[in-house]
């Protein structure tokens, strides 16, 4: 049914074509202004310019040198993500199902959660060397906590009365898991998995920038250390393409459709 609201039907609906034109105009204006300003008002050393950046990307694509970095970022991201998710969910289920232990260790986990995980990178590098393992360990250390808290919240969301009710009706343990436990946990897991992917990508790129010899994060850091600003921006553009290809289909903006919090 219609929910009454301010003269909604008297306001004109936006014409999607006009919106599209305005979006394109904004984009062209932005790129045009960038091209114009560079070298005239701001030295290209700082902001490069769109043509040079496009040239660098073209070169990377033509000689194929970009793929080693893209592949490295994707591999690190997903390995860290999967390891962290598996551990986080496992820990969440284990502690969720033994609430007394959970109550005892909660402050310890919260304290570790408060630590900015990137600070662990030097430690991991000393333990595992510069390479895939230390980066994967760092990404996993971020994802673990997010999925631990999501799983825990899901387990707490299980309706005990409903389980008792189903038991009385003679449901088996497996049936109860399928009909009550899983439906309670799954939405939380889904949110946790979606949110933590963004954090995982950030961590991947940071770990590459801090200690690595490949990956898009490394490419940004390396170009910057050479004061090659076109390279920096080109790498950022490639990263933007990659990140939006991963995040946008997942509706990363929609995750903010409710002011929910993952932790605690």
């Amino acid at each position: 049914m219609w929910k009454g609201s301010v003269v909604r039907n008297r306001q004109k609906a936006l014409n999607p074509r006009v919106v599209l034109v305005q979006q394109l105009a904004f984009l062209i204006l932005l790129i045009g202004a960038w091209q114009f300003v560079s070298g005239r008002l701001i030295p290209p050393f700082y902001i490069s310019n769109p043509l040079d950046i496009a040239g660098v990307i073209w070169k990377w694509l033509a000689d194929g040198s970009i793929w080693v970095h893209v592949r490295s970022t994707i591999v690190t991201l997903f390995m860290g993500y999967l390891v962290g998710a598996a551990l986080g969910i496992g820990l969440g289920l284990a502690l969720g199902l033994s609430p007394r232990t959970e109550r005892i260790v909660a402050p310890f986990i919260a304290a570790l959660y408060g630590l900015p995980k990137v600070a662990l990178l030097p430690l991991f590098v000393i333990f595992f060397g510069i390479g895939l393992v230390s980066k994967v360990a760092l990404v996993a250390s971020v994802v673990i906590f997010l999925l631990f808290y999501a799983t825990l919240a899901g387990v707490r969301d299980i309706d005990r009365d409903m389980i008792d009710g189903l038991r009385l009706m003679g449901a088996s343990g497996e049936e109860i898991t399928r009909k009550v436990r899983m439906p309670a946990i799954l939405p939380w897991l889904y949110t946790g998995l979606r949110t933590s992917l963004g954090y995982a990508l950030t961590t991947t790129v940071v770990s590459e920038a801090l200690s690595s010899n490949r990956g898009l994060g490394f490419l940004i850091e390396y170009s910057a250390s050479q004061f090659h600003s076109a390279g920096v921006f080109a790498a950022v553009v490639v990263l933007l393409v990659l990140s939006s290809a991963i995040m946008v289909p997942l509706g990363m903006l929609e995750r903010r459709s409710k002011p929910t919090r993952l932790s605690h």
Binding site: V205, G217, L240, M247
Partner: peptide
Amino acid sequence: LMNSLPIVALTPL
């Protein structure tokens, strides 16, 4: 788009 980009990647810049 901006929301999907890891902003800290801009640190070197």
